[in-house]
Nucleic acid binder design. Sequence first.
DNA 1: CTGAAAGCGCTTACAG
DNA 2: CTGAAAGCGCTTACAG
Lengths: 322, 322
Amino acid sequence: MKITIGEIALQSGVSKGTVSRVINNKPTVAKKTRHTVLAVMKRLGYVPDPVARELSMRTKHTLGIWVGAGENKLSPYFNLIWRALLREIQVRATQFIELPMDISPVSQRMDAVLMFHCTEIDQRLASLAARGVPAVLIGHHPGISCVAPDDTGGGRMASARLLALGHRRLLHLTLADDLQWACERANGFKAELEESKFPGIECVIVRGQGSVLGGYRLMRDAWRQGYRPTGIFCATDEMAVGALGALADLGVAVPGEVSVIGFDGLVELYPGLASVGQDIPAIAHEAVSLALAAIEKNTVRQKVVPVTLIDGATLGTAPTIP
Amino acid sequence: MKITIGEIALQSGVSKGTVSRVINNKPTVAKKTRHTVLAVMKRLGYVPDPVARELSMRTKHTLGIWVGAGENKLSPYFNLIWRALLREIQVRATQFIELPMDISPVSQRMDAVLMFHCTEIDQRLASLAARGVPAVLIGHHPGISCVAPDDTGGGRMASARLLALGHRRLLHLTLADDLQWACERANGFKAELEESKFPGIECVIVRGQGSVLGGYRLMRDAWRQGYRPTGIFCATDEMAVGALGALADLGVAVPGEVSVIGFDGLVELYPGLASVGQDIPAIAHEAVSLALAAIEKNTVRQKVVPVTLIDGATLGTAPTIP
DNA sequence: CTGAAAGCGCTTACAG
DNA sequence: CTGAAAGCGCTTACAG
């Protein structure tokens, strides 16, 4: 039998209202009461029912999640952000609907829409504007609420780290498409190099597909063409995995001969991969917050979520050339 | 303002109970009544609130979803099955909790656990058995409830198709690990070849990693070693994508010189890829059904979900060697 | 600080 | 075939 708030109330000798107050950390509960209620909850392994919670608490708002055509819905990153978003929405006791590609036949009310950066972004924003529905973008775009990782800062972190390890001949693998986030990562990387006081820095940038295979090919071709970097920064972890594959096939030791650092923080993708880690739960949290703020206060805000450098076995000091 | 059952009842001139009955397709509603209620619902764009629905309908059961260590939680396939599972659980108005790797500290009640085939499967099953919680596996395992795609049948389909297109020199890329599903796909593939009446069939099987990079390397190496298949079957679509990459790098025309077919049906992964498609929503549906049956009727059943052949631009008739 | 009561949106015996 | 009412598990004004 499921343990409910009623059972806890009974065993604690208080009312259900009071139990609810301790669950929600309301300040108006006597310390002692709170204590005994918590003890009973713990003893019975009680966990509040999220569904009941949502039904009674919810904001009355419905969020649409709109996945677009240009997106790679099967990518590891998308996978993670999606799961984080749903979890966040559940925690916030908010309703949501998953929007189909074409929203014109959707008649359900939605108070705001969460979307990702994708190809037909402008038309999509226009169609939402026509409906009077605010949009929140996970990515960058002028004029609407956005949340994105600190791509520029992350690029800087990557080069700072490589420089600190003594690397001077650098390679950056990035996307052929002019995606904003990829440009910012590259710009941050270059800016930090330029501002550094180290002499004799070389940096080559090559462009291709943002996939494992793309990284593989770029790395292999750069090496075959004779470029011999010791520090490699990849615009995505997927590309980094590909680059590592190419280096393995080429017989190049990592991190003995070259160091590799990716971006996204998907360490599960390749155990030990050094990366600039995104805070995906924070991004999901901000996205939902921005949506709620857009609905309630009609605000448009742009948020940048900090990134952190994740060390890994693919990073080492630059080899000293005798 | 949100449209509720009450509004529909009001505008239809019936009680909320009746509206509920038409929502749930109960037979005990007069045809005419049903008709007008549906019309009102349509006019108002009404959609029943899934949360309220769950709260009042639910089975009182809680399903655990237990993701294991050996699983690739970032793989496209996992991504899809996960989303399908959550959708199914929501539709079935069932509660669920996402279990951490180590369940020993979890005190929440759970009536059944959904899990995937992973490395430490036996210990995990034992720990569930110790708690008296039935398990449902997405995959194969003797003695417990399982649901899996028809791997053997899918393997057969792949070879039947390649044979029908005139291919006689075949290559199968599969996993180095002895995973049951991979073995079954290979066995089906081989069985169909052996049973076919075509003369002069050659088939080579190579093993490596089940990733894009794995497929790439296997294909490249097989080709470099001089094997010249015209029909290639890959144990996963990811491997197929890798194989296609290698063929492109080798300058081999697809489907002019060789045909490629994958397994899983992740056509988004590579537009035009021919594949043996899994019915992921059906698998998710069966998984939840088996779990509910295990709880209520204490049954253990094994379900096999049919697969279908998805044609694609990577498939063509075998080249005629002059 | 706490209890009693109404409410979230829906379903389902129970009567009729 | 249909309505009135209780219930799912929780929250939150409203009194006290």
